[in-house]
Nucleic acid binder design. Structure first.
Length: 239
DNA sequence: TCATTAAATTGTT
DNA sequence: AACAATTTAATGA
């Protein structure tokens, strides 16, 4: 899967957000009307094709990103060390605040696994909202806290180095209701895409999914997975 | 809206 | 990696 575009042209095709898209953004509702206007007028939506890169390791921070529709992955390919996918990035996700806060270069790549609708809030607006809006601060803080919990869980599972558990954790992470409110009970992801996210072959993912389905944690659907017991999926271990 | 066809996805070897 | 079976998406009457 090669990137079909160069560094930034994704945002040259950017457009204002539709009403439906705006209503899908959870933190907008808690802003004052003035702050909301500020955010809405500076935000841009764009369609990323499969393989498009939204941000690259080492590039200066430009936007706070949101996913309206589709699927992205966060990884460290083409950096020193082995390629590792940190997580899949499903609809409802907002990310990049850590990099923006420190005004440091991105530490990961974000790439579209399939055609996706993404939103960018410029870094300047991001900081203005941080300086003026208590509600916005609360959202960002909660976001950072929830994600910290996810990464701790990730380290825990990776120590076990069990592939079934990696699939379970990767799935459970993307079903996180606070971080990814756009997902719901059914995550739209193909087994091929899940393979990219957890770093396994499609065949291996297929076997792991069947195992998870047998013990009643998920139901495999065409082009997606339905979660039946998120708590058990999170804590899944072999044996 | 329905039938037909093409494309995508899955399950299996 | 390749294959067949199944599901969805697209097309046009």
């Amino acid at each position: 899967m090669t990137a079909s575009n160069m560094s930034v042209p994704l945002w040259q095709r950017a457009r204002p957000l539709s009403e439906a898209e705006l209503s899908d953004i959870p933190w907008l509702a808690s802003l004052s009307s003035q702050e909301k206007g500020q955010a809405v007028s500076s935000m841009r939506a764009a369609t990323a094709q499969a393989g498009d890169v939204l941000c690259r390791i080492g590039k200066p921070p430009t936007y706070w990103f949101g996913v309206i529709d589709g699927l992205l992955k966060m990884s460290n390919d083409n950096s020193a060390g082995p390629p590792i996918t940190f997580t899949g990035v499903p609809p409802g996700a907002w990310f990049g605040e850590g990099t923006l806060l420190k005004r440091e270069p991105y530490r990961y790549n974000i790439q579209a696994l399939r055609r996706s609708t993404v939103v960018g809030l410029p870094i300047d607006t991001f900081h203005e909202l941080l300086d003026t809006s208590l509600a916005f601060n609360r959202f960002v803080l909660r976001q950072l806290n929830e994600r910290l919990g996810q990464f701790i869980a990730a380290v825990e599972i990776d120590r076990l180095n069990d592939t079934d558990s990696r699939v379970a954790r990767g799935l459970a992470a993307m079903f996180h209701p606070e971080l990814y409110p756009g997902v719901g009970q059914v995550l739209r992801i193909t087994q091929q895409e899940l393979g990219y996210v957890v770093g396994l072959s499609r065949q291996r993912v297929n076997e792991a999914l069947k195992g998870l389905q047998d013990i009643g944690l998920i139901r495999i659907e065409y082009g997606g997975v339905r979660v039946l017991d998120l708590e058990m999926l999170r804590n899944h271990r072999v044996g």
